[in-house]
């Protein structure tokens, strides 16, 4: 009897836990697990509609990849390993934020290069704008200046 009462007391809590579980793409996860799965999916490009993340995409392949991510999250696979799984199959193009590598150096350096170019042009322009220093006064000019100053 006491056991039954105890069970009854916990029923609402159990129901609450059930309500909070999220089922997506065939995998049921806790809210924390679902948040981790979404964070991973947000960083991955859908290969079919290439400007969407796989979380946003309606493509069938994106749904399958979301299912794979969720199944791995459920097994406790670290996020980094799940990303690696995707890169192994589809290459670094699958990452919406490409890593810094020889292939992307120019891409990441471009703002700095543009700034340097702009500064260079600015510096050269300023150097040109500055008037050249006046030539030293000749003997007659100096005499005339003295005269003028005396007046």
């Amino acid at each position: 009897m006491r056991r039954l009462l105890l069970l009854l007391a916990f029923l609402p809590a159990l129901a609450f836990a059930q309500d909070n579980m999220v089922t997506r793409d065939g995998v049921t996860l806790t809210p924390a697990q679902e948040a981790r799965a979404e964070a991973i999916g947000d960083q991955l490009r859908c290969l079919v509609c290439q400007n969407e993340s796989i979380e946003e995409s309606n493509a069938k392949l994106a749904g399958q990849l979301r299912g794979i991510i969720r199944a791995q999250v459920k097994q406790g696979v670290p996020s980094k390993s799940i990303m690696h799984y995707m890169v192994q199959r589809y290459g670094i193009f699958v990452l919406l934020k490409p890593p810094i590598s020889p292939l992307t150096w120019l891409l990441y350096a471009s703002p700095i290069l543009a700034l340097l170019l702009g500064l260079g042009i600015f510096w050269l322009g300023r150097r040109r704008a500055a008037p050249p220093p006046p030539a030293p006064l000749s003997g007659t000019e100096a005499a005339r200046l003295d005269e003028l100053l005396k007046e």
Binding site: L47, V48, K60, L61, Q64, I68, R89
Partner: peptide, 12 residues
Amino acid sequence: SGLTAINWGVYG
């Protein structure tokens, strides 16, 4: 199932 295709990196 299309799961082998994913392992090959097939995207269409």
